[in-house]
């Protein structure tokens, strides 16, 4: 539905975006691949050379690696599950006839505007701190021992904080979807004798499929790279209990100062991200077609 000249113009106009993104992707990637086969330690810069796959095998043989992979998946999966389930429930609640829906939305969306390091430090210090946090005060008030969140339950605590940050996103998208559902459809179902639960199951939920797809897609993209929250709170610890793949790479690069190994980890992360991306795009691409 266009002429050749407009197709040519279209290619020309899409080119800058594609070219800069391609460079942004390929140059660091190529350098990372190069480093991943090199011996490159900042602490012993005089020793260099090719090491084949030794950097990779270090990763695969490290017990932390599999923990990091499972932590990464746990973080993404946990946050997705929490935000979607709670998001649906809260969206249903706000969509009821209530006073002050505008202010309500403002309250609910607020955590989204809080930058990750701030969110993490608020939760860690003001709430979860074992001496001075609010939760500790409550525990003392009830005569219980304060919970050592970051020590005893590091992954759960991180998942909790990240879920708080992303809950507004999920809730508001699901709410928007909910509000676009025609009430006639629901009334028709009611006339057909559907109970509240079956109305939700057969009408509301299918209507929200697309919105849920969007939430999963966008959140996964952001969650795979979660870094700041862990950096601010647990630093991957205790031990490696809350180390995710990005954080493990960061530790190799910045703390161990082994660029070769960090690069190998980077390439593994990129491959994993691409596997996730591939499945995500395949299963969601259809749903996203307008």
């Amino acid at each position: 539905m266009a002429t050749q000249s407009s197709r040519a113009a279209a290619r020309l106009m899409v080119a800058p975006s594609v070219i800069v993104l391609f460079i942004w992707m390929i140059v660091p990637l190529a350098m990372t691949i190069w480093f991943s086969f090199r011996l490159y330690r900042l602490l012993s810069p005089e020793r260099t050379g090719w090491v084949g796959f030794r950097n990779y095998s270090w990763f695969f043989n490290s017990p932390d690696f599999w923990l990091a992979i499972s932590n990464t998946l746990l973080l993404v999966g946990g946050v997705l599950a929490i935000t979607i389930v709670l998001g649906v429930l809260i969206a249903l609640l706000i969509d009821l006839p209530v006073w002050g829906q505008g202010p309500l939305r403002i309250l609910v969306i607020s955590p989204f505007f809080v930058m990750p390091p701030v969110a993490a430090s608020i939760w860690e210090n003001l709430f979860m701190h074992p001496q001075n946090g609010m939760f500790a005060s409550f525990a003392q008030g009830l005569g219980m021992k304060p919970i050592l969140f970051m020590e005893s339950y590091p992954m759960s605590s991180v998942i909790f904080i990240v879920s708080w940050e992303w809950l507004p996103f999920a809730t508001l998208i699901l709410l928007t979807a909910l509000q676009s559902l025609s009430s006639e459809q629901l009334e028709a179902a009611e006339m057909d004798g559907a109970s509240a639960i079956s109305r939700f199951r057969y009408i509301v939920l299918p209507h929200m499929t697309r919105a849920i797809t969007v939430v999963i897609l966008i959140q996964t993209i952001f969650l795979l790279g979660i870094f700041g929250e862990i950096f601010t709170t647990t630093q991957g610890g205790p031990g490696s209990a809350s180390t995710t793949l990005p954080y493990m790479i960061y530790k190799q690069a910045v703390i161990a100062k082994d660029i070769g190994r960090a690069a190998a980890g980077g390439i593994i992360a990129v491959i994993l991200a691409n596997i996730v991306a591939y499945f995500l795009m395949r299963s969601m691409g259809k749903n996203l077609d307008a």
Partner: peptide, 25 residues
Amino acid sequence: KDLLMWMLSTKMMPAAAVLIPMYLI
């Protein structure tokens, strides 16, 4: 559609993975 998906997939590259190259660049 593929182009859009490709663009979005560039966001999936973990930043930590390319930290050193970016730093050097």
